[in-house]
Amino acid sequence: MIEIIAGKYNYWIYISLMMIGFYAMIAKGNLIKKIVGLNIFQTAVFLFYISMAVREGSTAPILLSRAHGALTPETATYTNPLPHVLILTAIVVGVSVTAVALALAIKIYRAYGTLDEYRIAKLEQDAE
C-alpha cells in the first residue's frame, strides 16, 4: 500500500490538485475564486503530463558528448520531450482562458457591482 502511494506520488498529487480545483469551482461563490480553482484544475493536468514523460535516472534529451563523463549516448536514458512540448501549448491555452475569464469577471463587476454568484442570480431575478 505504502509502495503504491509513495512510488507514484506525483500522480496522487495530480489527482489531489485536480479535486481541490474542482471543489473550488463548484463550491465557491466568488467568481474570482472560481477562476483560481480553474487554474489549479488546469495546472494539475500539466503535472500529469510532465510526470508521464519522466523515466527513472533519465536526463534531458540532448545529444551527449564525451565530455559528460560516465554518460554516453549509448548508456544514457532520456526523458520524453514530447509531453513537455504538448504542455507548453496547454499552458498557453490556460493563460488565454484565464485572461478571458478575468475579462468577463471585470465586465460582470461593472454590470452588477458584485462578484458574488448568488447576488448576481438574485439581481437577474429581480430584473425579470
Binding site: V45, Y49, M52, L86, A90, V97, A101, L104
Partner: peptide
C-alpha cells in the same frame, strides 16, 4: 448584461470539458 454571466458559466464548464479531453489524450499517449 445577462449574456456576460452566461458566457462566464459557459467558459467554466467548457474549460472543464476541454481539460477532460486533454486528460483523455494524455492517457492514450501514455
Amino acid at each position: 448584461r445577462g449574456a456576460v454571466v452566461a458566457s462566464y458559466n459557459y467558459l467554466i464548464l467548457g474549460t472543464v470539458g476541454a481539460v477532460f479531453v486533454l486528460l483523455g489524450i494524455g492517457h492514450l499517449y501514455m
